[in-house]
Structures are given as C-alpha cells and as structure tokens.
Design a protein around this nucleic acid. Structure first.
Lengths: 203, 203
DNA sequence: TCAGCATCCGGAACACCGCTCCGTTTTGTC
DNA sequence: GACAAAACGGAGCGGTGTTCCGGATGCTGA
C-alpha cells in the first residue's frame, strides 16, 4: 500500500491540526448520519455526532452538496473508472453500457435520498448535480458513442438526458417497496436499441 | 350545460356562509400562488393572499395534498376521462396509450413542482399520490391492457410502475431548460413495444 | 520556553416554515 | 334580540438552515 494517495484529499490547505481533525470527524459523522437518515439529515445532527459546532461543519463544507460529494467521492470515482474498464472487457459496447448503468443505479439506489437530492431543484444541491455531471458525463458519453458506433443503439440520445433519466427513475425507491426502478430502466435501455432497420428513423 | 354538476364540490357540509366564502377564497388564492411559486409555496402566503388566517386554510384543507387535489381536480378528471375516449377514437390501442401519456405529461410538466410533489417521500403528499393513483391507475391499466391484447406492447408492465416512471421522468423540468422529459418518455414507450422476437424474453 | 497572533471553534441568534391551540368573532336560529 | 354552535385568526411551539462574533487553540519565531 503506497503510504498515501497524492491527490486523495482535495484541499489540504489547512495547516492546523485541529482543523484537519475536525474535518475528519465531520466526514465520518456525516457518513454515519447519511447512512441512517439519508442525505437530508439536519446539519445540527451531523455536528452533534461529530462533537463540533455547526459553524465548523459549514466552514469545511459550505454547502450540503460538498458534504455529499466528500462522503461519496470514492464511489463516484469507482463508478467513473468502471466505465472504460467495462468497455474494454465487454463483448459488445451495449453490454458495457448496460453494465455501467447497473452500477450507477446501484449507487443511487443504495444511498437514501441521493437520487432525490441529485434532481432536487433546491440550490443547496446544485453543486452536487454539477460534480456528478463533471465526473460521470464523459464516461457515459464514451459508452454511448461506442454503442452508437457499433450500431447497437440509436445515435440521437444525449448523455445528459440519459443520466438524468436514470437518476430520475431512481427517485423514491426508498419509500415505496412496490417500485422497482430497474425494470423501467431496462425498458428505457430497450427503447435505446436501434430497431432493426424497417425504413425511416423514429420521429 | 346542466346548471351544476351534482357531485362537483366534494364536501359542501358546511351551511355557514362565511365558511363557504372562505373556502372559495382559499381555493382561488391557492391556484394563484401555486401557479407562480409552485405547489411547495408556504401555507402562510396562501392564507395571506386569501385574507384569512392559517387555521382557516388548515380547517378546509387539512393537508397540502388536499389543496393540490382541490386545485387540480378538474384537470385530473379531464385526464382520466380522456383515456376511454382516446381508446375509442384511436386506430390502434398503442396510439391511444401514447396520446394519453402525452396528456398526462403535459399536465405534470405545466404545474411547477407537481411531479416532484407526487413522488416526494414526504408524508405531506402521501394523500396526493393516492388520489392520483385512485383516479388514473385504472385508466392507465385499461390502456395498457388494450395495447397488450392487441399485441402491440409487452404484457409484463404494471400500470403503477409506468405511471410512476412517467411521473419521475417529469421531475425537475422546471429548473433545467436542457432537460426534455418527453424524449425519454418516448424512449420508454419504444421499449414498451414488443420487439419482434429476436431471441428470448428480456431478462 | 513562551509570547503573539492568525486561525479556528462553538453555540447563540435570526429567519423561515409547518402545524396547533384557544380566546374571540360571526352566523344561523328561536 | 339573545343564545349556542360553528368558524375565525394569529400567537406560539418545535424544527431547520445559515450567520455572526467573542473566545479558545495551535503554530511560529525569538
């Protein structure tokens, strides 16, 4: 194990020990609270659990989105890196695409309220939306392009709308046992496939 | 037009003039506020606009969902009644289905935050979810059944998950001009069509 | 070692919201 | 006109996000 990843911590600006200590405390408290109460949990509770004041939380993570991205950074990263790998390993690009969508869905579905937060119109989460997009949009685009180039899917689907659609379909799974987003996502992917050339393109 | 629909007003229980007057005032104020600020607007504002106290709003409409259903009742009704009509008029059941989904989408998309509210996990909206389902689920089921019987779509799709999926896909259109739910909904409907058996059933 | 100071901390404080409670007012009836 | 039932209004409570500032804390240099 190589001591420490070089760019693992995004901003080691602070030189003071207490600041770094608190940052870690907040981060691990946040992970615990998010896991039990979802990403909408009150900041007060996070601060209390971390044993710090609320201002300390806000100082290290100005917006709730910063908190979410910090907690799930590794998983976002893993999802992003899985894209090229799947593409290299799969027999057909479409298989890679479905596999990756599956990973993405798993990620969203297992974090309480994460999908909701992602599409929330609250500006509290705007940065979260942006971060997901920055990291995952290129990956999705590459998978889509590959599948389109192979003629497996129609070529007029934008990466953004696909990601957004998957995210939207994952909303509310926590609170409704009847709802299984994966079925609909499968349907969407079926719709993505280029239909056997009967004549013209779909309107 | 026959003077008045008999069961148009759901609960004319009250005999007092001021109560009825206030109910109307709240209703029209709510419509205005919802149109400008979305269905999440503070109750305080609605009460202020109606010129009544907050308790009056709560007395007539105990939950926010009651307010929403009261304001949009006619449109929900129109959407529900359009189902059978489309089915009777269309050449093929699938056309009726797409036409109806289109109406439903229009409805959700033109009301700020309505789609969000519908799938919200907040119990404040649970009754709203229920009302939509009570009224629209049978209609959707009839359309799906007809299309399935005609062999135009696969038969393993539940009405609930379809409605839910459409609703979910409409979330967040207000705040993101880049996002056009109708394209994805079209894709979903494409996926619904029974593909000319290329192999086995989709897993 | 220790003074000095930039940095960071904590929680009180403010604003906003949903919802309820209860003294007051209005309305219909006798 | 008087009376009781019904309805009203807004203060009040609990909860949340976010900010502000006096005080504590850790680094630095002599």
């Amino acid at each position: 194990m190589p001591t420490e990843s070089p760019a693992d911590e995004p901003s080691p600006r602070s030189t003071r020990a207490d600041a770094l200590r608190n940052r870690e405390a907040v981060l691990s408290a946040t992970a615990e609270v998010f896991a039990t109460s979802g990403v909408d949990a009150p900041i007060r509770r996070i601060a209390a659990r971390a044993g710090v004041g609320m201002a300390t939380v806000y100082r290290h993570f100005p917006t709730r989105a910063d908190l979410v991205t910090a907690v799930y950074r590794h998983q976002i990263e893993a999802c992003a890196q899985a894209g090229p790998r799947l593409l290299a390993d799969a027999d057909a690009p479409f298989d890679a695409l479905t596999g990756w969508i599956d990973l993405f869905t798993d990620f969203l579905v297992t974090k309480h309220g994460l999908a909701d937060a992602l599409q929330s119109d609250s500006e509290r989460f705007a940065a979260l939306h942006t971060h997901f997009l920055d990291r995952l949009l290129p990956v999705c685009a590459a998978l889509l392009d590959a599948a389109a180039d192979a003629g497996e899917i129609r070529a007029d689907v934008q990466p953004y709308e696909l990601l957004r659609g998957i995210g939207n379909l994952c909303i509310g799974r926590d609170t409704d046992p009847r709802y299984e987003p994966r079925r609909l996502i499968g349907l969407l992917l079926d719709g993505l496939r280029r239909e056997p050339p009967p004549g013209g393109g779909a309107a």
